[in-house]
């Protein structure tokens, strides 16, 4: 019983990260800097919404009171969302969007790789599907970080600034609490600590090629994983939940 509740909480984190980042990227559909990138970002958004659908479906089955993935996605209050602060940050300019994506992908890929060995077969199955997509996401975001970093002076400065502002949110991805402890002991999830060095290595390699330097400010914002969000979150939810809140209990 306790294990079920704990896994529910963990799945919400992963599902909410996917959902909220997918929602953010979907705002850009039709507004990308070039048509090819419009397609790429929409595609990533679509993958993330697909991952959220599977993760929240599983979470809903383990919830204290059973829920559908749509109920979880659309009918919680802000405090109940446990996505990392990073993914709810606004799209900003293209460099901000790409840096946010890169910091997330560089964490998500090793997490999914380790989840392939999860003792929970269903979670391992979701990870397998998501990993195929995430490998492509990371390749895409890394390539753009490098292009912008080592492109023009303007693009270099822009993406360096994106890094300065967004890295402060990224450390929260490695947040751990009693949820992780129990699931790690059962072999269901990897420890965030085991992912951190892989993430760091990816960052160093990409930033070196991109000629970007790691910010001196190593402040680490926390809160999203515990339901304390940034000011941006309320607006995102107001928009996303608009139909379900305005027309409750209807089929679409």
């Amino acid at each position: 019983m306790k294990e079920k509740q704990t896994l529910y909480k963990y799945l919400l984190r992963m599902g909410d990260d996917s959902l909220i980042l997918g929602q953010r990227l979907s705002e850009l559909c039709g507004h990308g800097p070039i048509l090819e990138e419009d397609i790429a970002l929409t595609n990533i958004s679509l993958d993330l919404i697909g991952q959220a659908t599977l993760l929240l479906e599983y979470a809903g089955e383990l919830a204290p009171e059973k829920k559908t993935n749509d109920e979880l996605a659309y009918l919680r209050i802000e405090k109940e969302y446990v996505n990392a602060l990073l993914v709810e940050q606004p799209n900003g300019h293209f460099g901000d969007t790409i840096m946010r994506q890169f910091l997330f992908d560089a964490y998500r890929k090793p997490l999914l790789e380790k989840l392939l060995d999860s003792s929970d077969k269903r979670l391992a199955g979701i990870a397998e599907k998501a990993l195929k997509e995430t490998k492509y996401h990371l390749r895409h975001s890394s390539e753009w970080v490098i292009r912008l970093g080592d492109g023009t002076e303007e693009s270099h400065n822009k993406i360096q600034n994106s890094l300065e502002s967004l890295l402060r949110y990224a450390h929260e991805l490695f947040f751990e609490n009693e949820v992780d402890e129990l699931l790690i002991a059962q072999g269901i999830v990897p420890s965030a600590k085991s992912i951190f060095p892989i993430w760091e290595k990816t960052l160093h390699a990409v930033f070196e090629e991109a000629t970007l330097s790691l910010p001196k400010n190593n402040w680490k914002f926390q809160g999203g994983r515990e339901g304390r969000h940034s000011e941006h979150m309320g607006y995102l939810l107001a928009e996303m939940q608009y139909m379900q809140r305005t027309y409750p209990n209807m089929e679409w």
Binding site: S26, E27, C29, L35, I39, L46, L56, N69, A73
Partner: peptide, 28 residues
């Protein structure tokens, strides 16, 4: 695109995203 962020459920959001993405592909 104006309704993707407000699509009423996950399935509708995904289908609409895929549709608008197809249109970008047609444009290309």
């Amino acid at each position: 695109g104006n309704w993707i962020t407000r699509a009423p459920n996950l399935r509708r959001k995904a289908v609409l995203l895929a549709k608008v993405q197809d249109e970008a592909g047609h444009g290309l």
